[in-house]
C-alpha cells in the first residue's frame, strides 16, 4: 500500500482525477451526464474485480448485488417517501445482506458451479421483480419520485468523488494481505489453505465489500436516473457489460476495471450514429481485445512498470 503512494500509477491517477474534476467548468451537460453513468459503472466493475479477479471465481452475478441495492433504494423512496440519502444507505445495506445470502451456497462450490449459482441468483431476482410488478414496476421499470439533483455538474462531482473513494478503498484492500490471500486462494486453493489462511473468511469479506460498493453504486445510479429497470441494473446483459469492462481494463488491477467501464460507456455513445449496430461493434471490439490483449488496457501497462 505504501509503495502505491510512491508509484507512478498513483501520480497519474491523481492527475487524472484532478483534470476530471475540472470538466464541469467547460464541458457540456451531456458529456457530464454520460461520464456520470460511466463512473457508477466503473464502481460496479471494480467491485466485481475484487471478487473475481482476486478470488478467481467466475461470478456472473454482479447485477444481483447491484439490483438489490438499486431496487431496495428505489422502492423505499417510492413507497415511503423517505428522502434520498437514507434510501441509498438502506439500499447498500440490503445489498450486503444479499451478498451474504448469495455467499452461503456460492462459497461451497467452485468453477462453473459457482458461475451458475450466481447466474441463477440474477434470474431469480429478475423473476421476482416481474412477479411483484405492483411494487417494482415490473419488466420495464420503476419510476422514482426523487432524484439527488438535476444539476449535471453536481451529479458529475458526486459520481466522480464516489468512484475515487471507492477506488482508493478497493485498491487498498486488493493490495493488502486480504487481497494477497484471495489471490493465492484463486490460484491454488489447497496450498493457500494449507498455509493456514482461512479462505472462506477472506472470501466472505470480499463478498461483503463487493456487495456494499455494488449496492451503493446501484442506489446512487437509480437516484441519478430517476428510474430503475431490469434492463439497467439487473439484466444478465448488464452483468456481462460489467465483466467485459473488468476484463477489458485488465483483471486484478481494480483501477483498470474503472477504465474499462468508462471506455465501454463512452464508446457506446460515440457509436450512436451507427444506430442499432452500436452494441455489436462494442462487443466485437471487446472480443478482439480479450483474444489478442488478454491482459487488458492496464494489465499491459502495469506489467511493464512492475518489471522496471
Amino acid at each position: 500500500m505504501a509503495s502505491f503512494f510512491k508509484s507512478r500509477l498513483f501520480f497519474i491517477s491523481i492527475a487524472i482525477v484532478i483534470v476530471a474534476a475540472t470538466l464541469p467548468l467547460y464541458m457540456s451537460g451531456y458529456v457530464l451526464g454520460l461520464l456520470t453513468v460511466a463512473f457508477y459503472f466503473g464502481v460496479f466493475a471494480m467491485s466485481w474485480d475484487l471478487l473475481f479477479g482476486f478470488a478467481g471465481e467466475v461470478n456472473f452475478g454482479p447485477t444481483f448485488l447491484i439490483g438489490v441495492g438499486a431496487y431496495t433504494a428505489g422502492i423505499l423512496n417510492a413507497q415511503t417517501g423517505w428522502s434520498v440519502y437514507p434510501c441509498i444507505v438502506l439500499g447498500a445495506l440490503a445489498a450486503v445482506i444479499a451478498g451474504l445470502v448469495l455467499a452461503l451456497p456460492a462459497l461451497r462450490v467452485r468453477g462453473p458451479y459457482f458461475g451458475l449459482t450466481t447466474l441463477v441468483a440474477v434470474l431469480i431476482l429478475q423473476n421476482f421483480i416481474v412477479v411483484f410488478a405492483d411494487l417494482t414496476g415490473g419488466e420495464i421499470g420503476l419510476t422514482i419520485p426523487d432524484v439527488i439533483t438535476i444539476n449535471a455538474g453536481a451529479n458529475y462531482w458526486i459520481a466522480l468523488g464516489f468512484m475515487t473513494i471507492s477506488a482508493l478503498i478497493l485498491y487498498g484492500l486488493a493490495q493488502s494481505p486480504i487481497g494477497l490471500v484471495l489471490q493465492a486462494s484463486g490460484q491454488d486453493p489447497v496450498q493457500a489453505g494449507a498455509l493456514g489462511f482461512n479462505i472462506v473468511k477472506h472470501k466472505l469479506a470480499a463478498f461483503i465489500v463487493s456487495a456494499f460498493f455494488s449496492g451503493l453504486s446501484g442506489a446512487l445510479l437509480v437516484f441519478y436516473m430517476g428510474t430503475a429497470s431490469v434492463g439497467t441494473v439487473v439484466d444478465i446483459a448488464v452483468g456481462v457489460n460489467v465483466i467485459v469492462a473488468a476484463v477489458l481494463g485488465g483483471r486484478r488491477t481494480v483501477l483498470g476495471a474503472a477504465l474499462g467501464a468508462i471506455f465501454l460507456i463512452v464508446a457506446g455513445e460515440f457509436l450512436r450514429p451507427t444506430g442499432e449496430l452500436a452494441t455489436f461493434i462494442v462487443s466485437a471490439v471487446a472480443l478482439l481485445v480479450v483474444l489478442f490483449f488478454p491482459g487488458g488496457f492496464l494489465g499491459a501497462a502495469l506489467s511493464h512498470e512492475g518489471r522496471s
Binding site: 451531456y30 451526464g33 421499470g141 434492463g231 439497467t232
Partner: peptide
Amino acid sequence: YDNHSSSADSVRAFQRAVNE
C-alpha cells in the same frame, strides 16, 4: 434516438436531447 425499449436509455436520450 433509439431507446432499445429501455426506460434508462430513454432517460439518457431525453437528457441528451434537451441538454445537448
